[in-house]
């Protein structure tokens, strides 16, 4: 069981830093086109911010924001977004994951449609990676049911 920290410096700084880390992670996901980064790295940074919240503010405070159920749903919906975009391309008479066929749906030029398709799958990868990393940490650090949780 990872216990929450008692140090007020760490706690306060984590409280202030977490929103900015999360917005940076979303920036990394969304700007994978222009700068290094992408879904994988951004998702990992997002998971790290939630892990930081968990080890500083404890389990209960984190579960209010992101419970086990939400994490499980997010991890599968990330893969679903990715595969779903591929299936949409398939339905629009293209190859699997051929984003240029999305142009009909989005009313943009094929090149731009490919860019948007990349953005879509980056979001999917980011969601899946974030949820999986957090759930792995969650399960490793809290395998057994502790006394505190039974009281709830």
């Amino acid at each position: 069981m990872i216990q929450k920290s008692d140090d007020i410096i760490i706690k306060t700084l984590a409280r202030i830093l977490v929103p900015f880390i999360q917005i940076y992670a979303l920036y990394v996901i969304m700007h994978g086109h222009y700068s290094p980064g992408g879904g994988f790295q951004g998702g990992v940074i997002l998971a790290a911010s939630i892990i930081l919240l968990m080890i500083t503010h404890g389990l209960k405070d984190t579960q209010k924001r992101m419970s086990e159920k939400t994490v499980a749903i997010l991890s599968s919906s990330g893969v679903l977004i990715y595969a779903g975009i591929g299936v949409v391309c398939l339905i629009l008479a293209g190859n699997y994951l051929d984003y240029s066929k999305l142009a009909k749906l989005l009313h943009v030029a094929p090149a731009h449609a490919r860019s948007l398709g990349i953005l879509g799958i980056e979001i999917g990868v980011g969601l899946a990676v974030m949820a999986v990393m957090f759930s792995v940490f969650f399960d490793i650090s809290r395998g057994e049911v502790s006394q505190e949780d039974e009281d709830e």
């Binding site: 990992v44 790290a48 940490f137 650090s141």
Partner: peptide
């Protein structure tokens, strides 16, 4: 991000 960040965290856990 992956190896130095989350990998270390998971191993510490």
């Amino acid at each position: 991000s992956v190896s130095a960040g989350v990998g270390t965290i998971l191993m510490v856990a």
